[in-house]
Design a protein around this nucleic acid. Structure first.
Length: 852
RNA sequence: GGGCGCUUAGCUCAGUUGGCUAGAGCGCUUGCUUUACACGCAAGAUGUCGGGGGUUCAAGUCCCUCAGCGCCCACCA
C-alpha cells in the first residue's frame, strides 16, 4: 500500500504546495482562453483572517477550475501597505516601548515601518501558501513597489494636467488623536444620546432676540451668521439685521437660506462654516467668513476669548454652557439622539476641520463608471449590489486623497515657498526642497490615501501600460471581494480603471458577505470571538477549511462561521482518501483508459458520473461553487463509495473503477486541492504530473436501460435492509420466482442487502416485497411479524396520502389541460405506481393481520 | 428619512427562469469489530418553508400586507 492508513494533512500539504510551485503549475499556460484574477491585497503587516480564508477559497476554486478547463489562468498575489492601518499598528508597538511617532523624523519613521512590515513578509506569504492559493508568485506585487508608485504618480499627473485634481480648503474629517484626515466613507457614525441646547442671540439693535438650537455650543465661538428659512414668517423682519454673538464682541448677520428647516429646533440655525459641513456650504453661498476655533490638536485656538483658549472641546463646551447660563442666555436643553462621527480606529470624535487638501473632481469619473455599468459591461453577483453601486456613484462627492501620515506614497506636489498658491507637480519626492526656475518649492508632507493607489490594482499588477500581461489579461475576468469594499475599492477601481486604461478593469464582480461568529456577530478582538484560519488548518487541514468556509456560501450574504462545517469537510476528505485506498487495493494498474461498462451497475455509475459532471460544470461556470460541491459530494459519497465500491467487492470492473477515481479526483480538485493531489502523486495516476494540468474526464456515459436495471436492484436492496431492520430479523433468506435480474445479481443482493442467501423458491414463505415490483419475499420468522405489520401500517398511511394527492391533482381538469403534457403523464404513471404499491401493501397486511 | 437583505429540521444554511412525496452538514435515536473509512456502515425521527391575503392547474419560489432581525446610505443643526 502506498497510501497511508489515514490522511494527515500536515504531512503532505507543504510538500505538495512546494511541488506545485516548483513545477511552474501556477504560471499561465501558453495557450487557451485567458482567465485572470488578482488577489485583493491583504494588509502586508497583518495575519490572514477568516474573511481572507473565504476570499482566497473562492478565488482559488475559480482559478483551479478554469485551469482544469484548459484555460490560461493568471492569478496574481499581492500585499497592500495599508497606510493608516499599518501606521496605527506600528504606533501601538512604539507605545509599548514608551515612544511615539513624534520622537522620529518622517524618514526615520517611514524606514522603521518599512522594516516592521518587511519582517512580516515570510509570515504573510506562508499563510497564503497554507491556504493553498495557486497564485503565480513570480508576479507578486507589493503596493509600495516602484512600479506601483510610478503608476500612482502617472495617474495623479494625468489628473493634474486634465484639471481633475484641485487643492482646496475644505472641511475634512479629522481625527485629532491620529492627526490625520479621512475620506467621508471612512468615518464611523454611531447613534448617540446628546442635548439640543437653545441659546439666545440678542439683536444688535436690542429690538429682539433670536434663539438658536445647537448640539455643539462651543462652536458658537466660530459662528459667522445665523440663518433662517426665507419663507419663515417668524423671522422675516430680522433677516438682514445683525445679532450680537454671545461670549464674544462680534456681530454677525442674520441671513436667509432655504437649507434651514423651519420645523427643526427653533428654526434659527447658527452658522459655523469652519466646523460643520452644511454651514460650510451655506457660507459659500452667502460669502461668509470661515472662522476656525478648534485646532488640529483638538483644542480651542488662540483666536477665541481668553478663558477658552487651549481648552479641549469637551472642556470648552462646559465652560461655554456655564457662561451662557450665568449670563441668562441659555434658554434650555432637550435630549436627543443623533449620529456622531468617530475615528474607526480609536473612536475619537471626528472633528470637521478646515484644511487644505488635494481633492479629485470625481463626478466625471463617476459618470463614466455609471455608463459602463448601465451598458451592462460588468456582471455583479449578487445582482442587487449593482443598483447599490449606481446609487453611490450618482451621489458621490469629491475625494480627499491627502493623508497626514508618513506610511504611504508621498504626494508628488511641491509648494512655492514664496507664493503659497503656486503648486507644481514633481515626482522628486525624496527631496524636501527642489528648485525650479530659480524658485524654491517645498514638498507636500502628506501621502496619498491608500485607496488611491490600490484602486489602480487591476492594471498596475499586470504591468500597465506596455506589458504582455496587460495585453493578454486585462480586463480581469473576476474581481472577488467582500461587499464591504464595494464603495471604498470596487467603485474606485472601476472609475480609475476606465479613466486610465479606457476600459473596465474586470468583467465579473463576486461579492461575498462577512464571516461572523456563530451568533452572527462581527468577529473582533475585543469580543474575543475571532477564529484563526491558520489554527483551523493545523487542526483539520487546508482542504477541510476550504470546504468548511464555502459550505452554504452565497454571494452578498453574511456567513456565521461554525466549526462543524470544517468537520464536515474533514470527514469528506477522509472519505476521498479511503475511496482511493480501497481502489489501490483492488486495481492492478491505473494506466489503462479502458472504461468499458460491462454490467448494469457500470452503466448506472457512468450515468451518474455524466449527470454529475454536467451539472457540476454548469454550476461552476456560474460561480455557484457550494452547489457544485454538494452535487459532487453526493456523487462521490453516495453513488461511488456507498454503491459502486460496495458492488466492486463482488464483481469489480477494475479499469472502470480506476477511471472513475481519476474522474472524481479531477472534479474535486478545486475544492480539495491538497488531498486530491496527494492521492494523484502517491498513486502515480498520470505521467504528465500535476493534477492541475488535467482536464475533466470524458467517460462513456452509460446506457440508460441498463442503468435502470440496476435502479431496480438498488430499490430491492433498500427494501430488504429496511425490512430487516424493522423486523429485527436475522439469518433471513430472500426467495424469488421468475426474476432473472435477481438471479443475475444474487450475490450482490445478498451481500448488500444483508441476507444469508438469495434463492429461487416457492412463493408464500414469508413477507412479500412491494416496492421494487419484483416477486420476491423474505423468509422471516413469525415473531418478527408484529414489527412488520406496524411498519406496513405506516407505509399504507403514507401511500394513501400520496395516492389521494395524485388523484386530486389529476381530477383537476385545469391541471390536465394546462400543465405540460410530460408532467401530467408523469403524474399518471406515479398514480398507477402508487396505487399498485398501496394495493400490494394492503394485501400484505391482510395476509399477516386479517382481523384488523 | 431613504434603500437593501434575512426569517426553511435542534443548530448553521442550500433550494436558477413557479412543476417529482422540500434538501445538506453537524446534532439526535436504534443496530453494526461487513478485511477503504467509527472522520465509518445501515435503518430512522424531526419542517403548518415568520403571520395573513392574492395571482396560478400548481407558490418555499411571483405580488400585496403585517411582524421580527440585520446591514447600508443620508446635510435631523
Amino acid at each position: 500500500m502506498k497510501l497511508a492508513k489515514t490522511y494527515q494533512p500536515d504531512l503532505y500539504e507543504s510538500d505538495i504546495y512546494a511541488l506545485w510551485e516548483q513545477s511552474g503549475a501556477f504560471t499561465p499556460l501558453k495557450k487557451g482562453a485567458p482567465y485572470s484574477l488578482v488577489v485583493p491585497p491583504p494588509n502586508a503587516n497583518g495575519n490572514l483572517h477568516m474573511g481572507h480564508a473565504l476570499s482566497f477559497a473562492m478565488q482559488d476554486i475559480a482559478a483551479r477550475y478554469h485551469r482544469l478547463k484548459g484555460e490560461r489562468v493568471l492569478f496574481v498575489p499581492g500585499a497592500d501597505h495599508a497606510g493608516f492601518e499599518t501606521q496605527v499598528v506600528f504606533e501601538r508597538e512604539l507605545d509599548k516601548q514608551g515612544k511615539s511617532r513624534f520622537d522620529y523624523s518622517r524618514e526615520e519613521l517611514y524606514n522603521q515601518i518599512f522594516t516592521f512590515v518587511d519582517q512580516n513578509r515570510d509570515n504573510f506569504q506562508t499563510q497564503i501558501r497554507k491556504l493553498g492559493a495557486s497564485v503565480d508568485w513570480s508576479r507578486y506585487v507589493f503596493s509600495l513597489d516602484q512600479t506601483i508608485v510610478k503608476q500612482a504618480y502617472a495617474t495623479f499627473q494625468k489628473m493634474w494636467q486634465e484639471g481633475l485634481i484641485y487643492r482646496g480648503e475644505r472641511l475634512v474629517n479629522f481625527c485629532t488623536f491620529h492627526g490625520t484626515a479621512f475620506a467621508d466613507i471612512e468615518v464611523d457614525y454611531q447613534e448617540e444620546q446628546g442635548h439640543l441646547w437653545k441659546i439666545r442671540y440678542p439683536l444688535s439693535d436690542g429690538s429682539a432676540e433670536l434663539v438658536v438650537a445647537t448640539t455643539r455650543p462651543e462652536t458658537l465661538l466660530g459662528d459667522t451668521a445665523v440663518a433662517v428659512n426665507p419663507s419663515d414668517k417668524r423671522y422675516t423682519a430680522v433677516v438682514g439685521k445683525s445679532v450680537k454673538l454671545p461670549l464674544t464682541n462680534r456681530e454677525i448677520p442674520v441671513i436667509a437660506d432655504s437649507y434651514v428647516d423651519t420645523s427643526y429646533g427653533t428654526g434659527a440655525l447658527k452658522v459655523t462654516p469652519a466646523h460643520d459641513q452644511n454651514d460650510f456650504e451655506i457660507a459659500a453661498r452667502h460669502d461668509l467668513p470661515y472662522v476656525s476655533v478648534i485646532g488640529f490638536d483638538g483644542k480651542m485656538m488662540h483666536n477665541v476669548p481668553e478663558p477658552y483658549r487651549g481648552l479641549s472641546v469637551k472642556e470648552a463646551r462646559e465652560a461655554v454652557l456655564k457662561d451662557l447660563k450665568d449670563q441668562g442666555l441659555l434658554v434650555g436643553a432637550e435630549e436627543l439622539t443623533h449620529s456622531v462621527g468617530h475615528c474607526y480606529k480609536c473612536a475619537t470624535l471626528i472633528e470637521p476641520l478646515l484644511k487644505e487638501q488635494w481633492f479629485i473632481d470625481i463626478k466625471p469619473l463617476a459618470k463614466n463608471a455609471l455608463e459602463a455599468i448601465r451598458a451592462g459591461k460588468l456582471a455583479f453577483m449578487p445582482k442587487s449590489k449593482q443598483a447599490q453601486l449606481e446609487r453611490y456613484l450618482e451621489n458621490i462627492k469629491d475625494w480627499n486623497i491627502s493623508r497626514q501620515i508618513v506610511w504611504g506614497i508621498p504626494i508628488p506636489a511641491f509648494q512655492n515657498e514664496e507664493d503659497p498658491g503656486d503648486w507644481i507637480y514633481d515626482d522628486r519626492v525624496d527631496q524636501e526642497v527642489i528648485t525650479v526656475d530659480n524658485k524654491h518649492y517645498r514638498r507636500d508632507p502628506d501621502v496619498f490615501d491608500t485607496w488611491f493607489s490600490s484602486s489602480s490594482w487591476p492594471y498596475q499588477t499586470l504591468g500597465f501600460p506596455e506589458s504582455k500581461d496587460f495585453h493578454d489579461f486585462y480586463p480581469l475576468s473576476l474581481m472577488e471581494s467582500g461587499f464591504d469594499l464595494l464603495f471604498p475599492w470596487i467603485s474606485r477601481m472601476l472609475m480609475l480603471g476606465l479613466y486610465v486604461t479606457n476600459d473596465i478593469p474586470f468583467k465579473e464582480v463576486y461579492l461575498h458577505g462577512m464571516i461572523t461568529d456563530a451568533q452572527g456577530r462581527k468577529m473582533s478582538k475585543s469580543i474575543g470571538n475571532v477564529t484563526d484560519p491558520i489554527e483551523l488548518i493545523a487542526k483539520y487541514g487546508s482542504d477541510a477549511l476550504r470546504i468548511g468556509v464555502i459550505t452554504g456560501q452565497t454571494p452578498g450574504n453574511n456567513q456565521p462561521f461554525v466549526e462543524a462545517k470544517v468537520v464536515g469537510g474533514r470527514n469528506f476528505i477522509n472519505k476521498l482518501w479511503n475511496i482511493a485506498r480501497f481502489s489501490e487495493g483492488v486495481i492492478d494498474s491505473f494506466e489503462t483508459q479502458d472504461a468499458t461498462p460491462a454490467t448494469p451497475i457500470d452503466h448506472w455509475i457512468l450515468q451518474r458520473y455524466a449527470l454529475t459532471k454536467q451539472s457540476y460544470l454548469k454550476l461552476m461556470d456560474s460561480y455557484r461553487f457550494y452547489e457544485a460541491y454538494e452535487t459532487l459530494y453526493r456523487f462521490i459519497w453516495d453513488d461511488l463509495a456507498d454503491w459502486y465500491l460496495e458492488a466492486s467487492k463482488v464483481q469489480p470492473n477494475k479499469p472502470l473503477l480506476a477511471a472513475l477515481l481519476k474522474g472524481a479526483l479531477v472534479l474535486v480538485h478545486p475544492f480539495a486541492p491538497f488531498v486530491s493531489e496527494t492521492i494523484w502523486q502517491t498513486l502515480n495516476l498520470s505521467t504528465d504530473g500535476l493534477l492541475s494540468g488535467q482536464q475533466p474526464y470524458e467517460l462513456n456515459s452509460g446506457n440508460k436501460e441498463q442503468a435502470d436495471q440496476f435502479e431496480v436492484v438498488k430499490d430491492l436492496i433498500l427494501e430488504i435492509r429496511s425490512l430487516l431492520t424493522a423486523t429485527n430479523a436475522t439469518k433471513v433468506k430472500l426467495y424469488y420466482r421468475n426474476e432473472p435480474i435477481v438471479a443475475s445479481f444474487a450475490t450482490l443482493i445478498n451481500q448488500l442487502g444483508g441476507t444469508i442467501a438469495v434463492e429461487d423458491g416457492e412463493p408464500g414463505q414469508g413477507i412479500a416485497l412491494s416496492n421494487s415490483g419484483l416477486s420476491c419475499w423474505l423468509d422471516i420468522d413469525q415473531e418478527s411479524v408484529d414489527h412488520y405489520v406496524k411498519r406496513l401500517e405506516v407505509q399504507i398511511v403514507e401511500k394513501q396520502r400520496l395516492t389521494r394527492q395524485l388523484t386530486d391533482r389529476l381530477a383537476n381538469s385545469k391541471y390536465v389541460s394546462q400543465a405540460p403534457k410530460e408532467l401530467v403523464n408523469e403524474s399518471r404513471a406515479q398514480q398507477v405506481e402508487a396505487e399498485q404499491t398501496l394495493e400490494n401493501l394492503l394485501q400484505e397486511k391482510m395476509r399477516f393481520a386479517p382481523h384488523d
